[in-house]
Design a protein around this nucleic acid. Structure first.
Length: 671
DNA sequence: TATAGTGTTATTTTT
DNA sequence: TAACACTATA
């Protein structure tokens, strides 16, 4: 397919900074991939001098693959397509000494971070979960705004401000002691480095001669700063974004960066992609009219050449049980009538808990479904355990990881021993691991405890030594064998089946590592455990190639998770005041972002879109009668079919038909 | 170490 | 209300 004039312009404008305002479904990924190809083939750029930055690993992988298809492997060699965080990590990895880090630093994910903060602030915050969460997001914001603990202290006004500032200082100190970084550091440290060190800045500006940024509206302050520093005076930059799809401001994203861009780069060329290749006119019209209620910096109106299509539907359900029943029935009937696949349907909702009832009904009616989100692979206990072992091998001073594994499996190193070790380590300003070798420890710990502990730490020294040499995967395998982890799983799991599943996860981890090492994701001899552990924490591994058989499933996910995806038929649950403009957003007067969320949901649909709402809903134990979402009122009413409860009988009939049809199909397949 | 009982909390979560 | 984490108890 040929590019349209605007896409073409966006691809070929390379002489200055360029902002591509890409509406939903307007082919922005095509523009980015074609532009990379254009830069290499027509403008004489080497692939290794081009970097493209995305927010998710998935997006990065997809883009890499598509560029590979257009350019070929040879020509795209060295091209940097990664997330912001991976890019930051790469910079840190090469410059860590300047930053005062030791080799083999640890990377803390949110859970590690939370655990550390909890431990650190037990006295100050008294285990108040809410405060703890506030503190964590405050720290994240401070790092995003590049504030040191001194600066934060200086600004603190209230009592709580000062307390938080104190906690921040402690946190930074402790992370330093652990030789550990958190996710925010992966951006802010490179920024700091590039700001202050001219050599390093020159080196990276020379390395990255053209930079492309995807989903630019989701950048936060430090990410944009990183972009500016990498781009430098040359201003060879293309960013792609859509302010109407900014739904992560609660995570620090600053959609205002779109405006700042125009100020920082006066020669900025603005290109709008307004043709939508995804949705019917009716769907698009609804989306346009809805989002017109939000203020805009850059006006844009999407249009589509796809025919009008079906009107949008609103299903009114009696209560949430009925809502789930109706949606399930609708899907079964629709599939039967239109001979579609399950995977053509998506059910979207505001909050994760909304999936429960739907799941129940889908299961009852034997409709296969795939739930995105929930506990991810990497937050499973068994994976965290193994990861903690690997982290300790790479960085024994990582007390967090050390504590997780010291008595898992059982080594008779109980709380008492650890308590004494902890206070001794604290006194000497050493990590737990390092403290276990100190002579003075014997005055605090004796007998069995000391013996067990030292046996453990000496074992670590031995294994760590081995794992640095030789085959990385083999090192992981033999580690798991060494600690009898499988036995431990069988001992502690509620059933043999559960243990099996957990062990399967562990072996999935191996195959993940194997696949990743075999791919060309590593520079020559960088296939060390260190690198693997970092990549694992960033979840930046190759996709696992399984699950193609049971792929035909209805997609269930939150509206947030649906961004960037598209589905022929979309069901949008709970279009009610209090849910879709969420109550807290109403209270905090932030309905605009909720409207964008609705907008994202609507623009996911290609052919048909159905909203649902309940007359009654149970919330925190009490029955409430929600009113319909204000967003429904904002939609063009001519394009909407309000289905009250006029023909529930026919819906049930259709559902029965659908089930009969499925039974037929099943019978046929069995033969 | 499993279990029953109690308490807590209810928005989204790219890395 | 319901789901979950935590803890008291045998």
């Amino acid at each position: 397919m040929k590019l349209n004039p605007q896409q073409d312009e966006a691809v070929k404008y390379v002489s200055g900074p360029c902002l591509v305002l890409a509406g939903a479904g307007s082919g922005k990924t095509r523009v980015i991939t074609n532009k990379i190809a254009y830069l290499v083939q027509q403008c004489g750029y080497k692939a290794r001098n081009i970097a493209a930055v995305t927010f998710t690993n998935k997006a990065a992988r997809e883009m890499k693959e598509r560029v590979g298809q257009t350019l070929g492997k040879a020509e795209s060699k060295g091209l940097m397509v990664s997330t912001f965080h991976t890019l930051g990590l790469n910079i840190i990895r090469r410059e860590y000494k300047v930053l005062g880090l030791k080799a083999g630093f640890s990377l803390f994910d949110d859970q590690d971070q939370m655990a550390l903060l909890k431990e650190l602030t037990e006295k100050q915050l008294d285990g108040d979960k809410d405060l703890l969460r506030q503190l964590m997001s405050a720290i994240s914001n401070w790092k995003n705004d590049m504030l040191t603990s001194e600066q934060v202290k200086g600004r603190a006004v209230g009592e709580q401000d000062q307390l938080f500032a104190f906690c921040y200082e402690m946190y930074l100190k402790q992370m330093k002691a652990y030789n550990a970084l958190d996710f925010d550091d992966l951006i802010s440290l490179p920024v700091l480095l590039l700001r202050t060190n001219e050599d390093v800045r020159k080196r990276w500006q020379g390395r990255i001669k053209y930079l492309l940024v995807d989903e630019y509206q989701d950048t936060n302050t430090s990410q944009y700063e990183l972009v500016k520093l990498l781009v430098g005076e040359r201003e060879r930059l293309t960013v792609v974004g859509d302010d109407d799809q900014s739904i992560y401001s609660w995570r620090g994203a600053k959609p205002q960066n779109l405006v700042l861009l125009g100020q920082d780069y006066p020669s900025l060329r603005l290109i709008k992609l307004e043709q939508n290749y995804r949705s019917t006119c009716r769907i698009l019209r609804a989306a346009n009219i809805l989002i017109a209620n939000n203020p805009h910096v850059y006006e844009k109106t999407l249009f589509s050449e796809i025919p009008e299509g079906e009107p949008l539907k609103v299903l009114m359900a009696k209560n949430e049980e009925h809502e789930a029943e109706r949606v399930t029935g609708e899907i079964i009937a629709h599939k039967f009538l239109n001979r579609t696949n399950y995977k053509d349907y998506a059910i979207l909702y505001r909050g994760n808990h909304q999936s429960r009832l739907i799941e129940k009904w889908l299961v009852q009616n034997k409709v296969p479904y795939k739930l995105s989100g929930g506990t991810s692979f990497f937050s499973r206990a068994e994976i965290k355990d193994i990861m903690a072992y690997l982290r300790v091998l790479v960085n024994p001073d990582d007390d967090n990881a050390f504590l997780r594994i010291v008595n898992t499996p059982r080594r008779e190193i109980g709380p008492v021993t650890l308590e004494k070790l902890g206070s001794y380590a604290n006194m000497r300003g050493k990590s737990l691991f390092a403290a276990s070798f100190e002579m003075g420890l014997e005055q605090h710990l004796t007998g069995r405890g000391l013996e067990n502990l030292q046996r453990f730490t000496q074992w670590i020294v031995r294994i760590a030594d081995n794992s640095e040499r030789g085959n990385t995967v083999e090192a992981v395998r033999s580690l798991v064998r060494d600690i009898n982890y499988e036995d431990w799983l069988y001992e502690t799991s509620s059933s043999a089946k559960a243990a099996e599943m957990r062990m399967k996860n562990v072996s999935d981890l191996y195959s993940w590592i194997v696949a990743d090492l075999e791919g060309d994701n590593y520079d020559q001899e960088e296939k060390t455990l260190k690198e693997v552990v970092l990549k694992l924490t960033l979840r930046d591994m190759m996709e696992r190639g399984e699950e193609d058989e049971d792929n035909d499933a209805v997609q269930l996910m939150t509206l947030h998770a649906s961004k960037g995806l598209e589905f022929p038929y979309v069901y949008l649950l709970g279009s009610e005041e209090g849910i879709l403009p969420h109550q807290t957003s109403i209270d905090e007067d932030n309905v605009e972002e909720e409207r964008r969320l609705m907008y994202v949901g609507i623009t996911r649909a290609q052919k048909e879109l159905t909203f649902t709402m309940c007359k009654e809903r149970r919330q925190y134990g009490e029955l409430i009668k929600p009113s319909q979402s204000r967003f429904l009122d904002e939609l063009p009413q001519d394009d909407i079919e309000w289905e009250s409860r006029k023909k529930p009988v026919s819906a049930e009939e259709r559902m029965e038909k659908g089930q009969a049809h499925i039974a037929n199909l099943r019978a046929m397949f069995k033969k």
